[in-house]
């Protein structure tokens, strides 16, 4: 089983609902965020193109944060979700410097924090909070090893890209284009 997320950049309107839902669900301290919205404009006026992306930890298959962690605080659980055990984290920040997506930060309590794909909800068979609140249904979460899952069918049908695949991390957040 491999959990992944597909985010439709055409449906996404950048409303920030996913960001707020995550902060509320996970009690993210004020001034911090585990997911965020990026607006990318390319081209020269008047020939411009815009893409809106909801970004977060990519739960990489070959996760550099897990590799460089000296204490096994950064680890993988069922479905390849990357988590941080706060009682094992020493706050050395090796994982922060090894993440090409800048998806981690130091929690005010000292340990390193990031998106968990809402593992506490996924364990109960629920969707991550960001996916559950998206008003345009731009986000799909599921098991990409199950050919009948909605996410498997979507990434088989649609064109997609991942962020910085050349970094060799095999990210598991797919952006539908």
């Amino acid at each position: 089983m491999r959990y992944a997320m597909a985010i439709d950049t055409i449906r996404c309107v950048g409303c920030n609902d996913c960001v707020v839902a995550c902060q509320t669900e996970n009690n993210v301290p004020i001034g911090y965020c585990r997911d965020w919205i990026v607006e990318v404009t390319t081209g020269t006026y008047p020939q411009l193109a815009m893409e809106i992306r909801s970004e977060r930890c990519n739960h990489c298959e070959d996760a550099p944060c897990v590799r460089t962690c000296p204490t096994e605080a950064s680890h993988k659980v069922e479905g390849g979700i990357v988590l941080v055990d706060e009682d094992e984290c020493i706050g050395c920040k090796a994982c922060i410097t090894s993440c090409p997506y800048d998806a981690r930060y130091v929690h005010p309590e000292g340990y390193v924090d990031k998106c968990t794909f809402c593992f506490h909800r996924v364990e109960l068979g629920q969707k991550p909070s960001c996916v559950s609140v998206c008003p345009t249904h731009a986000m799909i979460f599921g098991d990409i090893d199950d050919p009948n899952s909605e996410i498997s069918k979507t990434i088989a049908r649609r064109k997609w890209k991942t962020l910085i695949p050349e970094a060799g991390t095999k990210p598991k957040v797919y952006y539908l284009t």
């Binding site: 920030n16 001034g31 911090y32 965020c33 965020w36 990026v38 607006e39 404009t41 390319t42 922060i96």
Partner: peptide, 17 residues
Amino acid sequence: MIEEIITSGRMNPGIDP
């Protein structure tokens, strides 16, 4: 030209800017 803006105002200390 590529312009990339984090519009959700992510300012995680130690990470941004």
